[in-house]
């Protein structure tokens, strides 16, 4: 199976099938399904952004929802003031990136967990801030805009058109982030995550890479905000509530950190699990979600995305085939080895 997937012809074939599905399915599915898939795309991108800073960068961020909210507000503001749609998209991407840059510039100065401790404040400060700046945000009422309604000439329903929009944005974002984390930047980031002292000895500044990864995460968050506005067509201070931020983080961990597939699973988690737990008992929602998060951390630290590899590993260790470890694993192991050769010790006490 895994050998089959490695053949280029099979890969291209699968890609063609996927693209065909993405084009045809929105036309055939009922409205509810289209809407659900579109929401999954929105939050998959939000989780992807979180993955850049947390999964790949190893810095816990509790503020990702803030950038989604900021992106959605910028989009809503642009749309209600009749900005060009491309300009609106760019603003929804650049403004959160700038906000993220400024925050990271300060937060990354303190090593360790400072980013987590500062970003937890973002949703908690952001909510009253969004209420206060009612000139731009519409206060508690929020903003709604219907810029993503299907144009006449397409002959499409609104939900179909919206799904096409978010699918295209999501795919492009995923491809770009994939190239980004697999390239030079990603390798450097992996070393920063593994061992900052080793990174700086190799001429890689942990500070700047943390700032950069946080900025990119914020930008991707802003993109997801634009997508959110395209699908939901309404945003309010409630969008960036604290518990959404925690659910987003749980979605990333449950999906699988530092994997693209994990981000998609995270999107599915974010959309479905609160609905499911609410259906069981609304008073149990938070408890069940906390329990799920802790269970995953206990049993499957790599998240659901690591499940196939985990099963394969179990099968291999039971003695059927002593295959060589996959290349990626070998690479991380090499990095770990390099790191463990130089034991670090904190001497600040």
């Amino acid at each position: 199976m895994s050998n089959l997937l490695k053949k280029p012809a099979v890969r291209w074939g699968a890609l063609v099938v996927l693209v065909a599905l993405a084009v045809v399915l929105p036309l055939m599915l009922p409205e509810v399904a289209n809407d659900t898939i579109a929401r999954i795309c929105v939050f998959a991108v939000a989780v992807l952004g979180l993955n850049v800073v947390m999964g790949y960068g190893g810095q816990v961020s509790l503020g990702q929802i803030f950038f989604l909210g900021l992106g959605s507000y910028v989009t809503a503001y642009g749309a209600t003031n009749d900005w060009n749609i491309v300009l609106t998209f760019l603003a929804a991407l650049v403004l959160p990136a700038i906000a993220g840059l400024v925050i990271a510039l300060a937060a990354a100065r303190l090593g360790g967990l400072a980013i987590a401790m500062v970003t937890i404040a973002l949703p908690i400060v952001g909510l009253p801030l969004a209420r206060r700046l009612d000139h731009w945000t519409g206060g508690s009422q929020g903003l709604s805009s219907r810029f993503s309604d299907a144009p006449e000439w397409t002959g499409l329903y609104h939900d179909q058109w919206q799904l096409y929009i978010v699918l295209v944005i999501a795919v492009v974002t995923f491809v770009l982030v994939r190239n980004f984390v697999r390239g030079k930047f990603g390798r450097a980031l992996a070393i920063v995550k593994e061992n900052e002292a080793v990174a700086s000895s190799m001429g890689i500044s942990p500070y700047w890479y943390k700032v950069l990864s946080f900025t990119i995460a914020s930008m991707v968050g802003g993109i997801s905000g634009f997508m959110y506005m395209s699908v939901v067509q309404y945003t309010s201070p409630e969008t960036l509530a604290f518990h959404h931020s925690i659910t987003l983080l749980a979605a990333m961990v449950v999906g699988g950190s530092a994997t693209l597939a994990g981000s998609v699973i995270g999107g599915v988690y974010f959309v479905f699990v609160p609905v499911l737990t609410n259906a069981i008992n609304p008073n149990l929602t938070a408890m069940l979600q906390g329990a799920i998060l802790l269970l995953v951390l206990f049993l499957l630290p790599g998240g659901l995305a690591s499940l196939p590899r985990r099963i394969a590993g179990l099968r291999r260790s039971s003695g059927s085939r002593p295959g060589a470890p996959p290349r990626e694993e070998a690479a991380t192991r090499a990095v770990q080895k390099a790191a463990s050769k130089q034991p670090t010790r904190k001497a600040d006490q």
Binding site: T285, M287, G290
Partner: peptide
Amino acid sequence: HTAVVVTIGLLTLITGICAW
């Protein structure tokens, strides 16, 4: 960082228990 995520899971869990 994993430990932080654990405490966040704990935060959700305990909040949930209180709500329950």
